[in-house]
């Protein structure tokens, strides 16, 4: 009986959304702000990757909010997991074989390098802070799975997180202090498609990459420590 009611409710919601979506044609030339972003994005913000110019330039405040959401989720997870007792049954964890152990130790710096490359070149190639940070966190996940006796120092990860967050806010406040708006692009924009171009965007993306990477690695660390 309850299942029938739930299926009926889901069909009503799906029907409503479909009826509403019929009015929105797919793939027409973009209206209003999409148009402006595509045509004027490069010259107004200086980055060749238009997604980056939207994420950090036009809607940078939303990005600040998003990394705060991730920060709140990480701290919340740490607060709740911290109250569990560690499992007192000491399960025998079989150490990985020599090939897996050596392979993981070899791959770890390579994956870190790929992640760092992605967020440093965020304004030139597809990618950016979130993607680079997630790849860095998956490198840490690989280390936890392959070599089970290495751990991240907690103070180090907290410090990296703090530096990342403060850099983003400091860059924004400098824009406010020189008389313009918060997150104003005050560095010179330079030539498009150079590494040192686009004003504050590389700095912001490096801060985001470090912060997101250390947060996600912290989540993995918290979960594995307590299980």
């Amino acid at each position: 009986m309850r299942k029938l009611f739930v299926i009926l409710l889901l069909l009503i919601i799906a029907g409503g959304i479909t009826l509403s979506l019929k009015e929105i044609p797919f793939g027409i030339p973009k209206t209003k702000i999409g148009d402006h972003f595509i045509n004027k994005g490069v010259e107004e913000t200086g980055s060749v990757n238009i997604v980056t110019s939207v994420v950090v330039g036009y809607r940078g405040f939303d990005t600040l909010g998003e990394i705060t959401v991730l920060f709140a989720a990480t701290i919340g997870l740490g607060a709740v997991i911290g109250t569990f007792r560690k499992n007192s049954v000491n399960r025998e964890v079989e150490a990985a074989s020599l090939i897996v152990y050596t392979g993981c130790r070899f791959l770890f710096p390579v994956i870190l390098l790929v992640g760092t490359y992605i967020f440093i070149h965020g304004h030139l190639t597809p990618g950016g802070g979130f993607q680079g940070g997630a790849i860095i966190a998956s490198a840490f996940l690989l280390m936890y799975l392959g070599c089970s006796n290495k751990r991240i120092k907690e103070n180090l990860s907290k410090t990296v997180e703090m530096i990342g967050g403060l850099t983003f806010i400091a860059v924004g406040i400098i824009g406010l202090a020189i008389g313009q708006d918060f997150l104003f692009n005050f560095l010179p924009k330079g030539e498009p498609a150079e590494l040192l171009s686009a004003g504050i965007i590389p700095i912001v993306y490096i801060a985001i990459g470090l912060k997101v990477g250390s947060e996600l690695a912290g989540i993995i660390d918290n979960l594995i420590q307590k299980s």
Partner: peptide
């Protein structure tokens, strides 16, 4: 949409 593809692969499939 290569940015979204990269994010989905790293976060959704791995983490």
């Amino acid at each position: 949409a290569p940015d979204v593809a990269m994010a989905e692969a790293a976060i959704g499939a791995a983490l």
